[in-house]
């Protein structure tokens, strides 16, 4: 028979451990493990001319279906709002001239979040945030759950729905092979005829972006999209208007992954969650057994089995 005192002692210890581990979780906020010299791209939308060369270069580099460069001169596609899909990792959207604002062409692609929700959501680690910046994808690990597509705040990852046997999640990888292994700029950056895209160290690009804003305050909206949004992104955008006006959703300055990861990791930190759960469960099981049969802690196994049967019958009664 467990005494009241013993029970309190046990549950107190369990709760204590849990509280302690939770406290540790509380005390350590999310610290970015990324390399300070990580790379990024800066898109200056005020310079972009909407020629769609980047789309062609991207398709060429990533072996996506595409026509000749001339076919990308077709400006009619700009009349519709497009999103990257399984056959195009990047698209340019045109925001027509209004009485107040000039025309704006906005290139859309994976923003390569500093703390990506897609990577956080991926249960098999097929998506990975390189410490050097790019968010890369490994089709061999992918199980096709498409959680990443739901998790992405920018709605970027696409899926090869047409491919019945070996479908892949499709998204920009910042040309990781070129950028990380060869030190070359991504295909789109290299192609851009007006250098609206700049490739370099993210911190350097941020500095350049702020210089441009400082030097031409009339030309630019004073915020660099991607400096803080969703915890920062490797791809930065400069424009003459707030990002919400060219297709970027209104987002918090914290990665959506922080909330989910804190809950998940907090619960399981130091195995405290399961420990607490099973500790409490065992206590409750014992105490309920004692209550019904008036037996102590040290019963014989046969008796335990007997109890088990009784409990099962109880359960059935409940259902009935």
């Amino acid at each position: 028979m467990v005494t009241r005192r013993e029970f309190l002692k046990f549950s107190g210890a369990t709760a204590g451990t849990a509280a302690l581990t939770s406290a540790t979780a509380l005390a350590s906020p999310y610290v970015s493990p990324l390399d300070p010299a990580r790379i990024g791209v800066l898109t200056d939308l005020t310079v972009c001319i909407g020629c769609r060369s980047c789309e062609w270069a991207c398709a060429e580099e990533n072996k996506l279906p595409h026509g000749t460069l001339d076919t990308y001169n077709d400006q009619a596609v700009l009349e519709k709002r497009r999103r990257p899909d399984a056959e195009a990792f990047t698209v340019v959207n045109r925001y027509a001239e209004t009485a107040e604002r000039p025309q704006l062409d906005a290139k859309v692609q994976c923003m390569h979040c500093e703390h990506p929700a897609c990577v956080s959501a991926c249960i098999v680690g097929a998506l990975e945030k390189s410490l050097m910046g790019p968010v890369t994808y490994d089709a061999w690990k992918c199980i096709g759950c498409r959680y990443c597509m739901i998790a992405c705040p920018f709605q970027i990852p696409a899926y090869e729905y047409e491919n019945a046997l070996t479908p892949r999640v499709m998204k920009c990888t910042m040309c990781a092979e070129r950028t990380l292994e060869q030190g070359r700029p991504p295909a789109c950056v290299e192609m851009c005829p007006v250098e609206a895209l700049l490739f370099g160290r993210r911190d350097e690009l941020l500095k350049i972006a702020h210089e441009r804003i400082d030097q031409n305050p009339d030309r630019y909206h004073p915020e660099v999209q991607g400096e803080h949004t969703v915890g920062g992104t490797s791809w930065l955008l400069l424009a003459d208007r707030p990002a919400t006006e060219f297709g970027i959703p209104k987002l918090a300055n914290e990665s959506p992954a922080v909330l989910t990861e804190t809950i998940q990791h907090g619960i399981f930190r130091g195995f405290s969650g399961p420990l607490m759960l099973f500790g409490l469960l065992s206590v409750l099981m014992k105490s309920s057994t004692d209550k019904r049969h008036g037996k102590g802690w040290d019963e014989s196994e046969d008796q335990e089995d007997q109890n088990q049967d009784n409990r099962n019958h109880d359960g059935e009664d409940h259902h009935g």
Binding site: S22, L26, Y30, D214, N253, E254, V258, L259, G266
Partner: peptide, 30 residues
């Protein structure tokens, strides 16, 4: 169980409000 989960969630939310993630105020070289 429900109480336990709520507790964990509360702890998590508390962490979310961490000041380390707040936006720096605009004091640019401008």
């Amino acid at each position: 169980l429900i109480v336990l989960l709520c507790l964990a969630a509360a702890a998590a939310t508390a962490q979310v409000a961490d000041p380390a993630h707040k936006t720096p105020t605009a004091s640019r070289p401008a």
